[in-house]
């Protein structure tokens, strides 16, 4: 015991205490609830252990897996489009010699809005009656209003547009930082070595940028996997669950239906999604850094 108190454990103790209170305990409690039929309206159900019943039900729950699949699809499409747009913006801004700082600041405007407000604004833009977009299209002779937020496919596209609008600048900023950090010499060497602009980009610029791409991907995959506010504001997961993502489903299950035990079981399954993406991108990040021999 004496040895224990003198060892490095003593120095780690404050950290351990804080981590236990802030991370470990909530995790354990929520994990426990996922093994109970805990309903917010019936507090005593918290103490009834039902084993894996919640998980078993979820495995057979088609609505849950559709939301899960839609989230993965949403994530894949949104991240890739944001990468493409962000890279384009970063490359263009990198070319500018005058006013670069101002543009950099302007570009970050969408990030300064609360996602709730972004959702609200885009809901208004896409509204089929009074929305800006349909009004605009009417000028061009599209008489029949397009049901942007009602049609299953269109609603998903609309939400994605809002998501991409608000977050492409994350990619743009990170990739611009990457571009600014690329040494000039190898780029010039490649030009003298016979590369045209595309070949320079593909063979030299891109390998240098990859670590930044994966950092941005990691950050954004965590962000998008927990997408809630914009969807909740624009469609609320509807109509008829056509835009339901994991977290809108979980929050409805937990707070509307008050089935907190079930909601927590969903969360635990969906957390694996985030962990999987994070792991994947970190692995790629390490790989690309090793390529550049930073380690």
């Amino acid at each position: 015991m004496k040895k224990f108190l003198n060892g490095p454990w003593v120095l780690l103790l404050p950290t351990l205490i804080i981590l236990t209170c802030v991370v470990l305990l909530p995790l354990l409690i929520s994990l426990w609830t996922s093994f109970t039929p805990f309903k917010l309206t019936k507090p005593d159900t918290l103490y009834r252990f039902v084993g894996f019943r919640n998980y078993e039900r979820l495995i057979g729950d088609i609505d849950f897996w559709i939301a899960f699949g839609r989230t993965v699809l949403f994530l894949a499409i949104a991240l890739n489009l944001e990468l493409v747009f962000g890279l384009g913006i970063a490359l263009l801004i990198n070319k500018i010699t005058y006013g670069q700082r101002t543009l950099r600041t302007l570009m970050m405007f969408p990030m300064m809005f609360s996602p709730i407000l972004v959702g609200f604004q885009w809901k208004y833009i896409f509204n089929d009656n009074i929305g800006l977009l349909n009004n605009f299209l009417r000028e061009f002779g599209v008489i029949q209003p397009i049901p942007w937020l009602v049609d299953g496919v269109l609603a998903n596209i609309s939400i994605m547009a809002a998501e991409i609008w608000s977050s492409t600048s994350v990619f743009a900023i990170l990739l611009l930082a990457g571009l600014l950090g690329i040494p000039k010499d190898p780029l010039e060497a490649a030009r003298v070595d016979g590369c045209n602009s595309w070949q320079v980009f593909k063979n030299i610029t891109l390998p240098f940028l990859m670590p930044f791409v994966f950092i941005a991907m990691t950050i954004r995959s965590l962000d998008v996997a927990r997408a809630y506010d914009i969807v909740q504001m624009m469609t609320g997961g509807g109509p008829a669950k056509r835009t339901e993502l994991l977290w809108t489903l979980i929050s409805r299950t937990g707070y509307v239906d008050a089935k907190m035990g079930m909601a927590n079981a969903m969360s635990y399954i969906s957390i694996f999604l985030s962990i999987a993406f994070t792991f994947f991108f970190f692995y790629k990040l390490m790989q690309s850094r090793q390529q550049l021999s930073y380690e």
Binding site: P183, D185, F208
Partner: peptide, 9 residues
């Protein structure tokens, strides 16, 4: 080049 300008990857 002065700084060699090799392709690090």
């Amino acid at each position: 080049f002065q700084n060699y300008a090799l392709y690090p990857h």
